[in-house]
Nucleic acid binder design. Sequence first.
DNA 1: CTGTTAGCGCGTTCAA
DNA 2: TTGAACGCGCTAACAG
Lengths: 359, 359
Amino acid sequence: MDSTESEAPAHGPRRARVAPEEPGARHPVTLAEVAREAGTSASTASRALRGQGYVAEDVRERLLAAADRLGYVPNASAQSLKQRRSRVIGVVVSELANQFYARLAAGVEQELRAAGYQMLLVSDNSEEGAEMAAARTFLALRSPGVIMTAVGPKAPEFLNARGVVVVEVDRQQAPESCDAVVLDNVTGAHDATTHLLGLGHRRIAFIGVDTDWTSDAGRLAGYRLAHVEAGAPVDESLTLLLDPRATGSARGAIASLLEQARPTAMFTGNNILAVQAWQVVRDLELRLPTDISLVGFDDLAWMEMVTPGITVVSQPTHELGRQAALLCLRRLAQPSTERRVQLMRPQLVVRGSTGPPRS
Amino acid sequence: MDSTESEAPAHGPRRARVAPEEPGARHPVTLAEVAREAGTSASTASRALRGQGYVAEDVRERLLAAADRLGYVPNASAQSLKQRRSRVIGVVVSELANQFYARLAAGVEQELRAAGYQMLLVSDNSEEGAEMAAARTFLALRSPGVIMTAVGPKAPEFLNARGVVVVEVDRQQAPESCDAVVLDNVTGAHDATTHLLGLGHRRIAFIGVDTDWTSDAGRLAGYRLAHVEAGAPVDESLTLLLDPRATGSARGAIASLLEQARPTAMFTGNNILAVQAWQVVRDLELRLPTDISLVGFDDLAWMEMVTPGITVVSQPTHELGRQAALLCLRRLAQPSTERRVQLMRPQLVVRGSTGPPRS
DNA sequence: CTGTTAGCGCGTTCAA
DNA sequence: TTGAACGCGCTAACAG
């Protein structure tokens, strides 16, 4: 990845920038100009172009034609200023380069765009400071709604207190005050762990993130719940909770967990950790599932491509995003409906990385 | 991925929405209110808060304190209306769910945010209609600049003609009028093909997309160039160009290419096609590289994880995005500098999927 | 150094 | 059914 850049001379013979050719493209055309062109007043033009209020049919057509001819594009700032709210929805994810968040964002964008809203996307690197800065930006833009995978309760509460509709996705930080779309993490982790217990494993490691996020906490809870249900004791030395800022470099910690605690199976709490657990297994030249079993959380393409395939708890990532957007839109349309938490169902996908322990 | 949703009753005992607690949070506080609170005029407040123009030190502090106390957030719409341009940069990618574009967007966002700009992200599914709609939105928002992986020349030219700074990334559609950041696709494809030719392959399939995009065209050109250099004839029946709207379901076409044209190696033009080529190889129970060699374009995590690893032309995706953002910012600062095309260097990463042909 | 004045482009009364 | 007048919140001239 250490590729370098180089300069290339522009090959076109033209001047630096193409000059605008359109008539009146010099300055963006305004509503008043459209009105003048059609021989009406600005207010009539306004009504005609947005289809509200009374306008004579022929006048409307004249206006429409004029707007089209002049290439009129309404000034969103002026509209927002007037209506006191914009059509820009703020979206915050933890890390856009992570496929999970990218797909989530793709789902959100799809629905927002379909509804005539725009997505202002911020990737906050799980820093609450960046998140608050984003919140202030959304406030400045008078965003009617915000959708976020929040790192803490501050931003959601801050926005909520100022009348912005906030929908939390993936995890809940301000459950008292926000709508949310989350996965049933407890069930997902429970199913995965039960699967391992059913195969005969009794030393199952849990590798997760040390946060108070409902997502991670739920997965740990499900892991424990399954043990309790099965009457199997939970060995705390098998639980590895990593610093959230260091989940990207967890291989060392995972390796020493394997060596010291000697689990027969591993359950990782997210896709980043799954990659690393898999790499550790490879580096240690262990075989899946003979030497150790592995279960991941969040299904990615590679998990089906490696040999053996990785057993995972899959989640409808794109759908999570879509539902969050829809929930946001619904709340914007009906501000005073009861608060709502939408629970999405995970699904255990069994592949070759899990098998009985070696006696 | 067919998980379902279900409704969960909100568990908090609270009312539907938390009421704002802040004093004056009912309506967002305005500059005039801050001014009144500090006993000055609005213009003085404006100068103080944005640090421009003369303001007495004590007055400034009073104003700053007042703004802070009241929780003042400047209204971006009003600012944009006044200055006739916003700080929102439009970004268009073809498909946010594709890792390539997601990482590109992440790079763009990082730099824009660092410079105090916001990213309005649209994923257009490679539809020119969606792209033009996005362009109109950016115009409406008075975006000073737009960064895009365009599907055609219309949107870039449209925006450019209206005075919007446009930077093309990944491919050039309007090379006459826009700055651009692109990969040296010819060299990348040339290196990959030369690598295969050097191993002794003479029947190398090229699997790409049938567009006039510079990216795909460049890759095909590099493939051919390498053949010419090596004095090896290009068998046109080995070139498979797929409908851009159907690149996601190319497995059938790839399989029949393998059966009919009997290549000893395959070179795929993007990451989506690489996955499918790999799957076809697996489904046909061919072995890499014994039965066939495979080279991909664009390095993804799984390509190093499967066995054998996939030889690829890697590209600095995140960096592509960063440079595009920087180029856009530079052009905004100096509108009349000469047009510039930045060429990024790809790198051939040799792994186990390539080897000599079976005699 | 500060306040007054005057819009930016639009939507929304309210009379006509 | 239409248009005149006003103001959304802010900044930029211009006087003071």
